[in-house]
Amino acid sequence: MNILRLAGDMTHLISVIVLLLKIHSIKSCAGISLKTQELYALVFVSRYLNIFTDFISLYNTIMKLIFLGTSFSIVWYMRYHKIVRRSYDKDQDTFRHYFLVLPCLILALLINERFTFKEIMWTFSLYLEAVAILPQLVLLQRTKNTDNLTVQYIFLLGAYRALYILNWIYRYFTEPDYLHWITWISGLVQTILYGDFFYYYFLSWKNNVKLQLPA
């Protein structure tokens, strides 16, 4: 595993920790989209179907368990925790996330590397992950007073895929036959969706003011 890939994974891990820290310490999920969190739980379930059948490494298995466990616990907190769920911006978080699932599934059935159940679900998870941030970005745009932890969480989540792109470039040049168009294009789309957010993030950082996306 190269350093870029490790950095990507760690960024992803830290993003989840930041979100859980927010939920645990201030008992609030204000500004966080439950729609996006539910999509991520679905992404991990469909991608990690091979967790008990194909052993890759201890690191790989542990990370998969962490991402599965944390995504479901975040959804649980936002839906059922008696204090946390009160802070959920239900009226603002109106993105119809189910409309993202079906097109991704159809696309995965049409465009995949191999027509097997596991491979199609893997591909579906890549397509869905690429667009899963959309409800969160819409909510961010609607929220007037976004707290710092939410902004850092979204930034880290975007940075993780950007680091993965660098990892793919590195692997392409160092490993024979490493060619995965579906993964690359999905990852690129995912990162491009962050373009606007990244722009305003750096602007707010440079000017040392609170981030707010223009409506």
Partner: peptide
Amino acid sequence: EENTSHHDEL
């Protein structure tokens, strides 16, 4: 064989 090389990524 089931494994393709991108399956080692998370």
